[in-house]
Design a protein around this nucleic acid. Structure first.
Lengths: 333, 333
DNA sequence: TGTTAGAATTAAACCGTTAAAATTCAAAGT
DNA sequence: ACTTTGAATTTTAACGGTTTAATTCTAACA
């Protein structure tokens, strides 16, 4: 690959001049600029962004850490961030944390060492204290789907407690009073908040929270089937099932039918997240919308505004979940 | 962030010695090594991988270009590549091409300029000629889900033609003879190959291919509903519907039910890819398995073997699709 | 014609690391 | 005691750019 040096030689100008035309610095005459441009074209020159990054301390790329690369939730999130950033000519460096503390830290270190201009994190295993400490460093850090105490400006978050409340309230509004709940892993803040919202709605209607109608799932399809199986084995009565995310709800729906249920007649089910596939279950899944794609673009806008100094960026830090009514939740018969 | 220079000063040794302990070069005495290690710990030193990359021309990261960040197909693919590479201590830089020629080229340029040690591409819009040319360059390039003429060693591919054949053959084996087909975008090689397989199976059974039972979809849910709607409007008779991927099949299933179909009785449907959600449609989707996650790990192994010189890597370049029998395809009544 | 301001350009230092060549050092061989 | 040898270490020059300060060039003005 041709270097800036070869370009400068061919064009008969200095390195600095070539650098200036690369960076669209106006302090170069049209004549000279053209000479340089021609030379670059002739050599097929392309700036080495590693070298640029080292010299200028700007990489035009922002680091992203997600828990997983697959799954509808992270897919939408990454897509939201990337499209917004890409439109502004910035690139994205993605790595994973797998919801494990060590791997999350490792991923963060990697992004920092890659000289990103900023990093956007979706971390679940790492402590608030660690994050607060991290924010004291030189690298600008932003958080997706997590509200860190005192770092509100750095967070784009969803009111998961409200979402959890909304889900349960909707179920109660349909006349259900024996309600099973499959939670997400409780070390994850969003799973915990959703459960808290569930409990608040329950309390508000004077329905006691019952341990026997509670199951901690894994946020995956198997969590839904395992949870439902658990409840069924325990011979509990319940007319509605709340799942802390749509994947578990899908698993539960499929498993319910395997166990001979007719849905939604025999059991009402509600999910959370409103993933694309939620409208392709049968019955179509009633769920709580989590505008994760939008939140992704917002996180991107946040760094565009703060780091790349773009104007006219209005930022919303906090998002509210809404109920999406479909077919899987009906009146208690 | 502390630099190697500060470490060397604190430890009282030269830059080169510090560099040697960073790189685990044995040519340094235990005593000195310890001094350096202590200094690094005290300063919280972390090598700047940008500078390392510039100096050594090795980045320990491999670039990945996918069409989209969301969607089950790419999710599985990225996850497969990443997990294998991560286990070997390598990192991944992901960017997107959005199935558009310009963006694909732009993404490739970005990855090259980032000094990746190799790049793995899932490109759809760019021509074979361009790729052949690209391979002549200095950057090692590998292709996912695409077979480029003469570049077999660089490709990890699925026999899509066979998959298409398999799907149609299975449908015919169930007694169907009026078969509608919703294809993927025909500028994509895999979509074209799947269609070719479909036609071969048809021909083999002396069933004529009918333009009126063909629809070119977009590989998304809407492609399925639009396609089915198109066939329904045209008052064609057909007892089975083949979709070139599972997302379109899901869309078709949902739409069929909206139009009052009872599935699978009124219409048999088969998909392609075997995405996670295929088992959560109702009826559960019969489909063709596309081991894209496995292919991802294989692509990673390929670069681990060729670029990072790891031993004991046995590579499979070509994968075969298999039929996954579930509930959405039944005998013609 | 001689100044001079301002624009265009260049030279040189720097970014944080690796690596080849040069140097120091200690132990072994004669 | 004096090389020889090989390991440990340092020196110095890359890597491919950016950027500041210094310099040259132009053209306008008195």
């Amino acid at each position: 690959m041709a270097t800036i040096y070869e370009v400068s030689k061919l064009a008969g100008v200095s390195l600095a001049t070539v650098s200036r035309v690369i960076n669209k610095n106006p302090r170069v005459s049209d004549k000279t600029r053209q000479k340089v441009l021609d030379a670059m074209a002739e050599l097929g020159y392309r700036p080495n962004s590693i070298a640029q990054s080292l010299a200028s301390n700007i990489s035009n790329s922002v680091g992203i850490l997600v828990s997983e690369l697959h799954g509808p939730f992270f897919g939408q999130m990454m897509a939201g961030i990337e499209s917004e950033l890409r439109a502004a000519g910035k690139h994205v460096i993605i790595t994973t944390g797998h919801s494990e503390e060590d791997k999350e830290k490792d991923g963060i270190e990697f992004l920092i060492s890659r000289n990103c201009d900023a990093i956007i994190l979706h971390v679940e295993a790492v402590s608030d204290a660690y994050l607060i400490d991290l924010c004291k460093g030189k690298m600008p850090v932003y958080f997706m789907s997590r509200l860190v105490e005192g770092l509100n400006d750095h967070c784009i978050s969803l009111d998961n407690e409200l979402g959890g409340y909304l889900a349960t309230q909707s179920v109660i509004a349909q006349g259900h009073s024996t309600i099973a709940y499959i939670a997400g892993p409780q070390f994850k803040a969003d799973a915990k908040d959703r459960l808290a919202g569930h409990k608040r709605a329950l309390a508000e209607s004077n329905i006691p929270f019952s341990d026997t109608l509670y199951f901690e799932g894994d946020f995956k399809e198997t969590g839904g089937s395992d949870g439902l199986n658990h409840f069924l084995e325990s011979k509990q009565e319940f007319s509605a099932l709340i799942c802390a995310n749509d994947e578990m709800a899908s698993g539960a729906i499929t498993y319910a039918r395997e166990r001979g249920f007719s849905l939604p007649k025999d059991l009402s089910i509600i999910g959370f997240d409103n993933i694309i596939f939620a409208r392709h279950t049968y019955p179509k899944l009633t769920t709580i919308d989590n505008p994760v794609n939008l939140m992704g673009t917002m996180a991107a806008k946040l760094v565009l505004k703060n780091i790349y100094k773009q104007k006219n960026m209005s930022i919303t830090h906090s998002f509210e979940p809404t109920l999406i009514t479909r077919d899987s939740l009906i009146c208690k018969s």
